[in-house]
C-alpha cells in the first residue's frame, strides 16, 4: 500500500510539474493545442467528403468513423499527456538518458514515461471529447466512452512501449518503433472491414486496434458485458506484457549487451 501511495504521489507531482512547465509558454501551449485540433479537423473534412461521394465503407457510416476518431484521439491524447515520453523511449535509450532514471529508486518505465507531457496531445484529448459530443450520445453512452478511452489509453500506450522497447534488444530499430506507432494509429482510424478478412487477426494481436476501437464500437452499437470484459482483460494483458518486455530489455541494457555500432 505504501508503495502504491508513493507511486500515486509521484504521478500527481509529475503531472503537476509537466503542466506547470507547459504553462511557462502559454502562447506555445495554445498554438499547439489548437494546431492539433485543426490537424484532426482536416481528416473530418476528408471523411465527410468521402462518405458523401461513396456512401458507406465496409458497413461503416460517417458516425462510426467519427466514433473511431473520438476514442483514438482521447486515448492518444491521455497517453501523451500523462506518459509524454511513451514514444520517446527509444531516443532516451539511444542517448543514454535512461541512466538518470536508473539512479532513482522508482520503476524506470513509469518514471521515464511520466517525466514529460506532450503539449499538442491536450489538443487531441479535447478534440476527441468534443467530437464524441457532436455525435449527440445519450448520457449513459458517455460512461462507456470514458471507460473505453481509459482501456484504449492503456492498450495504445502498451503498444507504443512494446515498439520502443525493441531498441533495448536491437540497435538501430528506432525506425521500426516509429513504424509500429504509425501502424497502430493508422489501423485504429479506418473502418475495420475495409481491410482484407485474412489480415484482421492482426487487430487482435500484434496491432491491437480491435481492443482500442473496434470492440468499443461494437459495444456502442450494442452494449454487452462480454465485450467490456474482453477489452478490460486485453488492456491489463497488454499493459503487463509491455512492462515485462521493457524490464527484460532493461536487464540487457544494464548488462551492456545492447549491441551498439561504432563507425
Amino acid at each position: 500500500m505504501d508503495r502504491l501511495n508513493a507511486y500515486a504521489r509521484l504521478f500527481r507531482l509529475s503531472f503537476a510539474a509537466n503542466l506547470a512547465a507547459a504553462m511557462e509558454y502559454r502562447v506555445n501551449f495554445l498554438v499547439q493545442v489548437f494546431g492539433m485540433i485543426l490537424n484532426n479537423c482536416a481528416f473530418i473534412v476528408f471523411w465527410k467528403v468521402l462518405f458523401r461521394r461513396a456512401g458507406n465503407l465496409g458497413g461503416y457510416g460517417f458516425r462510426d468513423v467519427m466514433f473511431l476518431w473520438a476514442i483514438t484521439a482521447v486515448a492518444f491524447g491521455i497517453s501523451h499527456v500523462v506518459f509524454g515520453n511513451v514514444r520517446n523511449l527509444s531516443v532516451l535509450i539511444k542517448q543514454g538518458d535512461l541512466d538518470v532514471y536508473l539512479l532513482q529508486p522508482k520503476d524506470v518505465l513509469f518514471n521515464a514515461m511520466t517525466s514529460r507531457t506532450i503539449v499538442s496531445a491536450w489538443g487531441d484529448m479535447c478534440f476527441g471529447l468534443v467530437l464524441f459530443g457532436f455525435l449527440r450520445p445519450e448520457a449513459s453512452a458517455w460512461m462507456g466512452f470514458l471507460f473505453f478511452s481509459a482501456t484504449g489509453t492503456l492498450v495504445l500506450s502498451a503498444t507504443f512501449v512494446l515498439g520502443e522497447s525493441l531498441t533495448l534488444f536491437v540497435d538501430g530499430s528506432e525506425g521500426l518503433s516509429q513504424s509500429v506507432a504509425e501502424m497502430i494509429l493508422s489501423f485504429s482510424l479506418y473502418p475495420e472491414k475495409v481491410f482484407p478478412e485474412g489480415m484482421r487477426w492482426i487487430f487482435y494481436s500484434i496491432l491491437p486496434s480491435g481492443f482500442i476501437v473496434f470492440l468499443p464500437l461494437a459495444f456502442w452499437r450494442a452494449p454487452s458485458v462480454g465485450i467490456a470484459a474482453w477489452v478490460t482483460l486485453a488492456a491489463a494483458g497488454y499493459g503487463f506484457g509491455a512492462w515485462l518486455l521493457f524490464s527484460a530489455g532493461l536487464r540487457r541494457y544494464e548488462s551492456g549487451n545492447r549491441i551498439s555500432a561504432r563507425s
Binding site: 508513493a6 507531482l13 510539474a17 506547470a20 522508482k106
Partner: peptide
C-alpha cells in the same frame, strides 16, 4: 523550465 523548488518537490516524491 521550472524553479528548482518544483524539482525538489518531485525528488521528494521519488525518494519518498
Amino acid at each position: 523550465h521550472l524553479p528548482a523548488g518544483d524539482s525538489f518537490r518531485l525528488l521528494g516524491a521519488v525518494y519518498e
